[in-house]
Design a protein around this nucleic acid. Structure first.
Length: 639
DNA sequence: TCAGGTGTC
DNA sequence: GAGACACCTGA
């Protein structure tokens, strides 16, 4: 809708071959969902615009919106690039609105979804607004209760507020958890407003104490709305769901639970004792299910916005039957992946994949082969293509290769380029690296201009059968003492473009508004030195410099734990990129493909992983990762 | 690391 | 269903 500038009330759907992959809200009003054919859709709504997704045509240098793409399923391949690009712009916008890392925690949860951990930001706003929380504690006793919140009525603005649990009433005065959620919702509203104003997209959000509830909340009221699930409302909210709607219970595990206990309702499953769950599902999975349906979940918002693998795939209808046909598709895959690698910055040595993977399906049989990408030489489309051909050869010699119903090529194991090796190193090294990067960029540009690789060992073959060298355009506790302040502020933002039945086209922000840990008087920190140390990596408060090796950003002079350096620099990178996009938009001048952006590597120096769960039955690994891993952002009130 | 699989969007 | 992703496990 944004791309085509269609009116907001115009029914529109995105078509992919004979199916519809996204349906906007005006179209949903006509009773459409994703599972209907395009003929049925047109019948339901003659006014419907059905826009086919962009496709790559064999031999073309770039994907495009082809008039009659749906008629060319045999020769075209879908390109989701436009959506990836918009996804990046939206992510950059969100990062722009939020304070700099390490305060900022954003997890890309899908092409149109993010989780935000707003704990740190909410914490600092709380201290600003309620200086009485800064302590010291009465009588110097950190176990003393916090003061009651001064406010008696909170203004929830236009947010959808989930009803409170039965034991609670709206007449009860708000507690600190409520206030944390309120602040979270203010932040989320500003994020959504920025996305709307700058990029024209609506989205919906959920604000709650953890990712699971925030995500459920984000889908609760759509489009273009946000839902707050206060801690006091969690039981009430969750009780009304089928547990198969809960993340990780939508698949086989969920089915297993349904058939084991004969219900798909949270309410019913709540009656099953822990021991029963553990007995029937295994200790780990059983405990996980027990916790999750009670609204308990501690998975972290993983500060991750970069992709880890890249895949180009095609299902063949009808199947293909020869090496020659398959190779033609490998060319397209290689071109697709290479162009995306260029956008990822391979030519600037920013990030680089380590492996190539080929998947092949024949009948019900899936097979795959992978190979390392030779290090130390630059990656180009030919290299990817040649590796892919080798892998295909390996699959074929095993026999039973035809008829082939599906083929996919992917690259993965992304590694940071030289600029990513940011350990103890200072800025001097970076200066050198900057030079190297610049040289690499020049080299890439030179190659682009001269139309080929000028190193003898990598000379382009004379005629490669249609692949053109190209460079893609760069485009809490209540007042009770010592109680857990169990309100990690998480937000989930989701594009208003979901199609799971009721959902419409609007993205989602899962706003986890959570302060996991305790709300307590500042002195508590010193009474728990060992614990504090354990969490030093998480502490964003610069008042803890002695506990951890610090890094001071040379661009904004902000100090932080060394472990947060990489992420912080990424944030600057995102800012730069955005600024550059703005200037690109205003001055229409063409630009070389490799404008320097300064440093930006994502070396994962995140919190140390918790202990791995011991072996266990090969259950869907899902709950494993969900299991509480210590190292949560423990926020201690104070200073 | 490799091959296979699950879950989700 | 199709095209992506992330993450897990056993060998």
């Amino acid at each position: 809708m944004v791309r085509l500038s269609v009116p907001e009330d115009q029914p529109l759907a995105v078509q992919q071959w004979q199916g519809l992959i996204a349906i906007n809200y005006p179209a949903r009003k006509h009773g459409m969902n994703r599972h209907i054919t395009i003929a049925e859709a047109k019948k339901l709504c003659p006014d419907l615009i059905m826009q086919h997704v962009a496709t790559w045509k064999e031999g073309d240098e770039k994907w495009a919106y082809h008039e009659d793409a749906f008629a060319h399923i045999a020769t075209h391949k879908v390109s989701l690039d436009p959506y990836r690009r918009e996804s990046r712009r939206i992510l950059a916008c969100i990062k722009d609105v939020l304070p700099a890392p390490p305060m900022q925690k954003v997890e890309k949860a899908g092409i149109d979804e993010v989780f935000l951990d707003l704990s740190a930001q909410i914490h600092s706003i709380l201290l600003e607004r309620y200086p009485e929380l800064s302590g010291p504690a009465p009588y110097d006793d950190p176990t003393e209760s916090l003061p009651r919140p001064p406010t008696t009525a909170l203004d929830w603005n236009t947010d959808a507020l989930v009803d409170l649990d039965t034991a609670e009433t709206e007449d009860d005065d708000p507690d600190w958890d409520d206030i944390a959620m309120l602040i979270g919702s203010e932040i989320v509203r500003s994020v959504r407003a920025a996305i709307r104003e700058r990029l024209k997209y609506t989205c919906s959000a959920g604000i709650a104490k953890n990712k699971m509830i925030a995500k459920l909340g984000s889908a609760h009221q759509k489009p273009n709305q946000q839902t707050i699930v206060r801690n006091r409302a969690v039981q009430q909210f969750l009780g009304g769901f089928k547990f198969t709607k809960i993340r990780n219970l939508g698949g086989k595990l969920g089915d297993q639970v349904v058939s084991t206990f004969g219900t798909d309702l949270v309410k019913k499953l709540l009656e099953v004792p822990l021991e029963q769950l553990k007995f029937k599902l295994g200790d780990d999975t059983g405990s996980w299910v027990y916790q999750i349906i009670r609204g308990e979940e501690q998975s972290e918002v993983n500060s991750r916005t970069q992709i880890k693998s890249m895949l180009s795939a095609k299902s063949f209808r009808p199947s293909i039957n020869s090496m020659e046909q398959a190779v033609r598709w490998l060319r397209i895959f290689a071109a697709d992946i290479y162009s995306r690698l260029v956008e990822e910055g391979v030519n600037e040595n920013k990030r680089r994949p380590k492996t190539v993977n080929l998947h092949h399906r024949q009948g019900g049989q899936m097979r795959s082969r992978q190979a390392p990408i030779p290090s130390g030489r630059s990656i180009d489309e030919i290299l990817i293509f040649e590796l892919a051909k080798t892998l295909l050869g390996q699959v074929i010699v095993e026999g039973r290769a035809w008829p082939c119903a599906n083929l996919s090529l992917s690259v993965g194991g992304f590694e940071d380029g030289p600029a990513g090796n940011r350990g103890i190193g200072g800025f001097l090294v970076r200066g050198e690296e900057a030079k190297v990067m610049k040289l690499a960029a020049c080299d890439a540009d030179h190659r682009a201009l001269t139309g080929g690789d000028d190193r003898p060992e990598k000379r382009r073959k004379v005629d490669d059968g249609g692949i053109q060298k190209f460079f893609a355009k760069r485009d809490g506790s209540r007042e009770e003492r010592d109680e857990d302040f169990d309100s990690d502020q998480h937000a989930h933002v989701d594009a208003d473009q979901h199609d799971d039945g009721e959902g419409g086209s609007d993205a989602e922000v899962y706003g986890q508004a959570g302060l996991q840990g305790k709300i307590a008087w500042p002195e508590e920190r010193s009474t728990d030195a060992a614990d504090a140390h354990e969490h030093t990596q998480e502490i964003s408060d610069p008042s803890h410099p002695l506990l951890v090796e610090t890094y001071t950003c040379d661009r904004c002079s902000k100090s932080m734990a060394m472990s947060n350096q990489a992420e912080h620099e990424d944030w600057h990178f995102a800012k730069d990129l955005q600024a550059q996009e703005r200037t690109n938009a205003t001055s229409a001048g063409a630009r070389p493909s490799s404008a320097p952006h300064g440093n930006s590597e994502l070396s994962k120096v995140g919190p140390t992983r918790g202990p791995k769960r011991p072996g266990g039955a090969g259950q869907t690994g899902a709950p494993v990762q969900k299991r509480a891993e210590k190292g949560q952002s423990k926020l201690v009130f104070g200073r």
